[in-house]
Design a protein around this nucleic acid. Sequence first.
DNA 1: TAATTACCCACTAGATAGGTAGGTAATATA
DNA 2: TATATTACCTACCTATCTAGTGGGTAATTA
Lengths: 133, 133
Amino acid sequence: MMISSRGRYALRVMIDLAEHDDGAYIPMKEVAQRQDISLKYLEKILPQLVAAKLVEGQHGKGGGYRLTRAPENYPIGEILRLTEGDLAPVACLECGAEACKRTADCRTLPMWSELNRRINDYLDSVTIADLMK
Amino acid sequence: MMISSRGRYALRVMIDLAEHDDGAYIPMKEVAQRQDISLKYLEKILPQLVAAKLVEGQHGKGGGYRLTRAPENYPIGEILRLTEGDLAPVACLECGAEACKRTADCRTLPMWSELNRRINDYLDSVTIADLMK
DNA sequence: TAATTACCCACTAGATAGGTAGGTAATATA
DNA sequence: TATATTACCTACCTATCTAGTGGGTAATTA
């Protein structure tokens, strides 16, 4: 399995924020209840989304989170690459991967590259707006 | 990351057997040396390939392994689904997965299904013959 | 000032990956 | 028949990762 709970939860939070967006901040407590996800666990994921400016957080009463873009401007691939670290199907295609010595005449590398391209292309062709009710 | 060493090694063994096929059995000791993979680890993978009749094994001197089909009749997807257990990108699409209660109106399930379809379709469109030198 | 909310840090149980060690069973050859 | 060779089997190990929990602090509003 390729996509962990972290990435799937991030996606569900973003969709939830999009579907309940009325301009106000939405506290994560509400999202956690609606989505039936541990609030504590979400609190570890959200700061990463804030740092990447996918959402903005506001402290205090009346605070919470809110999207920074229109839903159609969030490609799913962007959210997953951020939260999962990478979507590469094999280790040698991961971002910081050190070149393996077999790279030059590796029989399988071209196939992995093409698979990687297809996965990313598809996930970048879908947006949050496509997944809303 | 989605494809573990187990699946990648299985693939490299199959390609090695295909490239060195002269009708005789090829001992795994040779393959392990050529591919620079732990023989002990390969010995844990091969019985699974034998059980699925992807290769046949022969004991004793002059023994080893040999492909049971022509290289163009091995879709990569078949080998990987066997050795990896599953290629599903998310847990809820795995073979023995119990239905999650959100399935009915899950926003993300259709996307995961389509991704799953694309991954399997591509990997089934490539064969061992395509990966040989 | 009190309540609320984001955010930070440390810890943990369980699962999995990627092996290693030490054998036994089957087969060919001398 | 003896020996070497090879597949194949069982048990074990260690490091890493996942999906959390617990206990706070900082910022903001009412």
